[in-house]
Design a protein around this nucleic acid. Structure first.
Length: 108
DNA sequence: GTTTTGACAGTAT
DNA sequence: AATACTGCCAAAA
């Protein structure tokens, strides 16, 4: 049975490990997965694997704390709402990465 | 095996 | 600040 690449598996695992109330950027995920510049692969995997693995895709955002969708898109508001439900507050349309960026610490 | 797509990031203009 | 261009990676067609 063919499986995903190590990169993909790591990405999936990492995303599943994002604690509630935290967010991660594509670049960060890619970096942790071993491909510092594979943010696009992460994005692809994310939307592609979300069906198979119930991934918290809403916790994965673009650099700078911005969502991956243009304002006005239905998915944008959906994601925003999901995040706010998890105590992630939006400031001026962006997330405060200083507070919510997942640093892979999880030493709660 | 080559081309296309995809929910990106970084730099330059 | 906003846009354009480039670099990068993985999966599907």
């Amino acid at each position: 049975m063919i499986e995903y690449s190590d990169f993909s598996k790591k990405v999936i695992k990492l995303i599943k490990s994002i604690p509630k109330g935290n967010v991660a950027t594509y670049g960060l995920i890619a970096k942790l997965a071993g491909r510092p510049q594979g943010s696009r692969g992460v994005g692809w995997l994310l939307h592609s694997s979300t069906r198979k693995h119930h991934l918290p895709w809403q916790r994965v955002i673009k650099s700078g704390g911005k969502l991956s969708f243009p304002e006005g898109a239905n998915a944008y508001f959906l994601q925003k709402e999901l995040l706010e439900k998890e105590d992630v507050i939006f400031l001026n349309g962006r997330i405060d990465l200083k507070k919510y960026l997942w640093k892979k610490i999880t030493l709660f």
